[in-house]
Nucleic acid binder design. Structure first.
Lengths: 199, 199
DNA sequence: GACGCTATAGGTCAATTGTCCTAGTTGTTT
DNA sequence: AAACAACTAGGACAATTGACCTATAGCGTC
């Protein structure tokens, strides 16, 4: 048996094709060709196109969870953890300038298609929001934690949109630097000291 | 003859359909049905789908110019003019929560489709950027004017993406308020006084 | 009235779409 | 060896896509 099952391969290829070309614009034929299987073989693994979409979203949710967990276990402080999130903009700058943010663009497209999976896709944003809010809570943001999380999430989304519109890498770097200074200059958070034991 | 020509009607209906459903997902048949004409009649006005897209973008560019000019002639100060831009988020909140920002979503979709008109669509962003930069320049921002313009443009785009992802109207209002306070608290701009005669 | 131009309608085209079906192949279990 | 399930391939399906074509209706100008 292969290291990755055919089903897993399909999801993986569909994921990148959905990202780079959009969900609606990506056909079964394209995915099948990318995987290297026949179109007919598809329907043994996925009955409908929506099934593939759901599988792709589920995959993204899981990999997001794993990534957030790894950041959480990094041993770094909450500020550095938030920076890990922000620096994704630079790490993935090439793809972002070409195709935007995978999550934001999918949510937007599904909204226009009035697709039921839109809520499912937004769940990925929810993971980031909750995780970021957790970091801000450790920083003593209290009730404002979630609002700050949404703010930084929104900030990064705006950068992604402008980056793809103008294909401007310098803008990404400028804004990331701005986020960094905003983060380190955050007005005195009440209990910023007690970082450990926050269950 | 009708008040608006058939050609103009087609562009208008195609505009909203492209916005609400996406360019790729909108078919000739849908536009024709929305206008109330036969599909065949289409090709007398537009040879290809790209022609309609270009016409729609040109229409948006023109209406954007008109809007910016009207704000410019408002007699208000540059800060209030910038607020006119920002308050579009609230004025169009219902549509934004359902379909995102017309400009941002179109640019993103065209980028994924690797469509030549992507540059054309980004031109609309360019209009906003230049106009905003002009306002910041009047405020004495000097070389930083364009950077500030891109920042506020990016900010509003991020709000639009999060708004459509979570269908969250409260978030729009929160962020708009945040932009307002950021604007009024902008660190001392060198020549903020000389507002008139800036040709 | 004859001509010419624009506008409109409706049909046709090949290509592609998502979906389904059937016939083989492979591998495991008995 | 036989039986069974999982997998794969390739064709066929109706529907839709963007695009093209011709025929006709309307209208103004000579």
């Amino acid at each position: 048996m292969p290291v990755t099952s055919t089903r897993e391969l399909i999801i993986e290829k569909a994921d990148t094709l959905f990202y780079e070309g959009g969900y609606e614009a990506t056909s079964f034929a394209e995915i099948a060709a990318a995987v290297g299987i026949s179109r007919g073989n598809f329907y043994h693994h996925f009955k409908t196109k929506d099934d593939i979409l759901n599988a792709v979203i589920r995959r993204r949710v899981m990999s997001t969870r794993i990534m957030l967990d790894s950041w959480q276990a990094d041993g770094a402080g909450p500020r550095d953890r938030i920076l890990s999130f922000v620096h994704m903009l630079i790490a993935n700058r090439s793809k972002i300038m070409a195709f935007g943010c995978p999550v934001g663009t999918l949510c937007t497209e599904l909204a226009k298609l009035d697709h039921v999976a839109q809520t499912h896709a937004a769940e990925i944003f929810g993971l980031f929001r909750d995780w970021l809010a957790g970091q801000f809570r450790v920083l003593g943001a209290g009730d404002r934690a979630e609002q700050l999380a949404m703010h930084i999430l929104s900030w990064s989304q705006g950068v992604a949109v402008m980056a793809v519109a103008f294909r401007d890498e310098a803008f990404i770097r400028t804004e990331v630097a701005r986020i960094e200074s905003w983060l380190s200059a955050l007005p005195n958070l009440p209990h910023a000291a007690k970082e450990s034991q926050c269950s």
